[in-house]
Design a protein around this nucleic acid. Structure first.
Lengths: 129, 129, 129, 129
DNA sequence: GTGGTCTAGACCACG
DNA sequence: GTGGTCTAGACCACT
């Protein structure tokens, strides 16, 4: 179940994208299963239909789902779209963003590392190939 | 030396804030030293003066610098302006943002942790009181 | 209703901040309610939109409102953003400012205290947690 | 002895004005005594001579000192320059400023009142006529 | 010279 | 429609 948080830094459509991606990672949405309809999900989350549509188009262009005309969107076997170099760069950017956000908070490196470990423990490991 | 990157996700004024904050943390700007003037820095970065002024006002409200009227902004002994609760919340948000950005890149938790460690090793430890 | 006074010592954006803060404290703006739009308020006060935007960004960083993208700013349950030490320091500064302004007016301490009591009686008490 | 505080909200010339006014109120500077020279005081406080000159001109126009040509500035018997109405208005303004500064700090009225009492106890009472 | 405030007008992402 | 950012250019108080 996706939760929309009003105080979140991410825009709503991004929260939806991340939420569905998470459901795919954790197996709650398996390959071949159908996403809720745009209208259905927008009502469930009480957000604008345009917002859900935008999220879905993002999932499409990310290659996580495919559109079957007249039937809806379906989760597909994820293609590795990004190059290793691109993935590496994104990881670096993300960690640098973490630095930017935390540098003024006067936490020790260890404080931050512990928090990273803590928050990641509940998540499935990405590299299970 | 601060570099403004137009392709950066951060707005320009935030890049300036982060750049100066970094210079303060790394000791390039010591307590008591004067920041470059608004007009001077804006010319150097070829950015509008208002943009620099906005960055400076952020540093001011963060308690990293103080304004001496008619003279400029000066680095001060950093004050603990935020409550512990607020600091903790911001740390959590920042780490959650890292998760959102890295999920789907199929990195293992260990990959990510190693990158965090790597990027942080060059920085001075925040909690050196 | 906020009134902008051109002869006021406070800059316009501060008058807006104080005005809205007052409306929040007195319950005229309840938690969950929406602030007037930047453009709307700027027209009503015949002030530039940037000025209102600056006031709103201050309220945002004070933790009194949150931004819901595309919808506007909404009053939230106030957070304790500042450390106790910082709050205490600001209180002291504010009282010292009162002293500086009233010294030389040859009021007795009691005159001043009575005025403080009088002006505060109409306001809700801050510490009602 | 006047102390210039760089982090003070008041501009330096105002700190000097207030400092001298305080010395007059507490009797450290008696009627008939001479103020330090502009150059002397500016060196002692390590501030610009223009700044001291500005402070002195303020004291002159406030009727607290008079200029004896070629000799310097001397403290005089204070004339009541302000009308009662004007004094009352200034007191109100000052208290309202206190409200504006403290309203977001979530102190109880009593906290604030206690701080006012505390800070005033060290000062001589204005209304000793 | 310094920062601080304000206006006017523009563009962007989000819903 | 919403807020957020940026530019250009102006005026002010302070040193």
């Amino acid at each position: 179940m996706i939760k929309i948080v009003t105080g979140d830094a991410r825009p709503i459509f991004k929260q939806i994208v991340d939420g569905i991606r998470m459901q795919i990672m954790t197996g709650q949405l398996q390959v071949g299963s159908k996403l809720p309809s745009v209208r259905g999900l927008s009502m469930q989350l009480t957000v604008n239909t345009n917002t859900v549509a935008k999220a879905y188009s993002e999932l499409l262009s990310n290659g996580l789902v495919e559109s079957r005309k007249g039937l809806g969107l379906f989760v597909i076997q994820p293609k590795q779209i990004l190059s290793d170099q691109e993935r590496q760069q994104r990881l670096e950017k993300a960690v640098e963003a973490l630095i930017h956000e935390t540098i003024g908070l006067s936490f020790s490196h260890d404080d931050i590392l512990q928090m990273v470990k803590l928050k990641f423990t509940d998540l499935p490991d990405g590299n299970t190939d």
